[in-house]
Write a protein that binds this DNA or RNA. Structure first.
Length: 587
RNA sequence: GCGGUCGUAGUCUAGCUUGGCUAGGACUUCGGCCUCCCACGCCGACGACCCGGGUUCAAAUCCCGGCGACCGCACCA
């Protein structure tokens, strides 16, 4: 604990509030705590669920997205194929004198002026040699460096009792979707475009995670893989979103050293090809809307384009959606990557499974093709045991090239084999193609669930009369309604409990509180962001009306108990405002 | 992982220099009183020296190690 009398910043206050009221806290506290792991209390868990629900409402239903759940542990092959084993690591060297660690490639870039594209290709051995060749010493103390070593940011484990069966904890949920592509495509009734989403835990062994919910070693990721035909890249929802504005920081600005924000409509962004894929632009517009719905104003959001060397290995173009927070400035909340056919192609290559889809032409295309037919009766006697091999090579050879060569010089050199005209028959074959096979392209919006929780808290937090209030949008508040007897006697609590039970049966998330003064209970409720408070007072006993209190304005209205279910359902579905809930009441 | 600062109830903190503690206070929480609508007041209760080792008759206090936090460096495909 520091002695400084600095006033704590918003992040500190929110994390303290979160811990005190049970939104979330660092896990394993009784053993001293481990950074990068967090436990959500029931308020936090509920808030997170509500945020995820909100995302589902926006992304899943309208687009017919299929939601799945796949394992966290995968066999090593999956992440070898995906490229993570190769890319999800950093070469580090340690100074033998002061023990400081540096990125080996960064040292070469800085002190030997070797560019990034080249340092990336170097092996550990080559890195070591390059460091020695350029006589690079520790920039801190001038000491020499030890052997370069990779730091792998994936969690590694073994599957079953055999240590050679290496498994990895997934650093993203996307691969769980790609590896199941064939089955999922079938479930999507073999039609493009379609999307698959999953919400689940992911693991990254961060070197030093210390920013609360912003950087965790185990976190909840939401990956949505949207598959489409690159020849039909049009988005059928574009009309609905083309006039939405996006605030972009383009790579070209960043190259000029500027973080200038250009504000354009979705339509303009596509016309000026700031964004390459229509679907990606629409997902970005949806992502912006999601964060607005979570309470983050549009002007506190931006999309920043990644420079080529900043991009993940799979991405052709990618934008990070960032939210401005007081403590750290702009922080990523979602990534929007155009992954092309990279992942499916890799898995196709590594697994041998065919990841292509079949697309039928409107009319079958008939083409005439020149085909070489090897005549085994001739090849056999000439090439003996090599005849089969020659025949195979022939059928794979370019027929037109063979034909041309024979016409020109009377023979064709197939590698070291001399092919004479009589060995083959050149035929003209009519081929009817009904369609073609191709690997779909993918755009991926990917959200950090925990960060959305953090940002929802940050933007919900305000102070009124020295009291903390979490002004969550009403549909993500963990608790919807508080029910309070004005006093704890004369039958008020019995009546309040009736109201409480009635609202529970109506499906609301309700809390009953009779402890302490009414003002204290309102304050407690404000602090966890309960939008409405219902108070049973002496008038209730006469005319069965109660007061309803608004968290944000502290205003109150009066309504009949029997009208509550209808009014409240409307309120929480944004079909009614607070003023519509009853007659104004002065306490 | 390195360097600096630091670790006392749910929270904020006093005590540490110079060892003597039955560890003090405030807020919160819980129980009670008060016709009580914005953390009112009054009575009462629960609750802590980060962990381990050492020095000592005696350790919250001194020493060593570990763990954790904050800030900076590095890292964040």
């Amino acid at each position: 604990m520091s002695n400084e009398t600095k006033t704590p910043d918003k992040f500190t206050i929110i994390n303290e509030l979160a811990r005190r009221r049970g939104f979330f806290w660092q896990s394993y506290e009784i053993y001293g705590g481990v950074s990068g792991f967090v436990t959500y209390g029931f308020l936090g868990a509920k808030l997170k669920q509500n945020i995820e629900k909100k995302l589902r409402e926006l992304f899943v239903n309208k687009l017919g997205i299929l939601e799945i759940e796949s394992p966290v542990i995968s066999p090593s092959k999956v992440f070898k194929a995906s490229g993570h084993v190769d890319h999800f690591k950093e070469p580090m060297v340690e100074c033998s004198k002061c023990k400081k660690r540096f990125r080996a490639d960064h040292l070469l870039q800085e002190f030997a002026k070797i560019n990034e594209a080249e340092t990336e290709k170097l092996s550990l051995k080559e890195l070591k040699e390059a460091i020695e060749k350029h006589k690079i010493r520790c920039p801190e103390c001038g000491g020499t460096f030890g052997e370069p070593k990779y730091f792998l940011t994936m969690f590694k484990t073994t599957i079953g009792p055999y240590s050679e069966a290496v498994g990895y904890g997934r650093p993203e949920a996307a691969q769980g979707i790609f590896v199941e592509f064939r089955r999922l495509y079938e479930m999507a009734r073999e039609k493009l475009p379609f999307g698959v989403m999953q919400i689940g835990h992911a693991l990254r062994n961060e070197i030093s995670p210390r920013q609360g919910l912003i950087r965790l070693r185990e976190f909840t990721i939401i990956d949505l893989e949207f598959f489409f035909d690159p020849e039909e890249p049009n988005c059928f929802l574009l009309k609905d979103f083309e006039n939405e504005t996006l605030r972009l920081v383009l790579a070209e600005s960043k190259l000029r050293g500027s973080e200038e924000i250009v504000e354009v409509t979705v339509k303009e962004a596509l016309e000026k090809s700031y964004i390459k894929a229509e679907w990606q632009a629409v997902f970005m517009a949806l992502a912006k809307k999601l964060l607005v719905d979570l309470g983050v104003p549009a002007e506190k959001q931006r999309f920043i384009e990644k420079l080529p060397w900043e991009r993940a290995h799979y991405a052709l173009q990618s934008f990070d959606q960032e939210v401005y927070v007081e403590r750290w400035g702009w922080v990523e909340v979602s990534g929007h990557a155009y992954r092309t056919d990279y992942d499916l192609k890799q898995h196709m290559q590594f697994s041998g499974a065919d990841m292509r889809v079949f697309k039928e032409y409107e009319k079958p295309v008939e083409t005439e093709q020149t085909v070489i037919k090897p005549l085994m009766a001739k090849l056999g006697p000439v090439f003996k045991e090599e005849a089969a091999k020659v025949a195979e090579m022939l059928s794979e050879a370019d027929a037109e090239e063979v034909e041309a060569s024979i016409k020109k010089s009377g023979y064709y050199m197939l590698g070291k084999y001399k092919i004479l005209p009589e060995y083959i028959e050149v035929m003209c074959q009519k081929v009817k193609e009904r369609g073609k096979r191709f690997i779909p392209h993918v755009v991926e919006p990917s959200f950090g669930s925990d960060r959305m929780v953090q940002f929802a808290l940050e933007y919900a937090y305000r102070v009124k009369d020295d009291r903390a209030i979490l002004s969550f949008p009403r549909d993500i508040a963990p608790i919807q309604i508080g029910v309070y007897p004005l006093m704890n006697k004369n039958g008020l609590s019995e009546k309040a409990l009736q109201v409480y039970k009635m609202l529970l049966n109506e499906g609301f998330t309700v809390e009953y509180d009779e402890a302490g003064s009414i003002g204290r209970r309102y304050a407690r409720a404000d602090e966890v962001g309960i939008p409405l408070g219902i108070t049973v007072d002496y008038e209730t006993l006469n005319d069965t009306t109660v007061t309803i209190r608004d968290r944000d304005t502290w205003k109150q209205v009066r309504s009949r108990i029997e009208d509550l279910p209808k009014l409240l359902h409307e309120y929480f579905h944004w079909k009614a405002d607070f003023e519509d809930l009853g007659k104004p009441f002065e306490g």
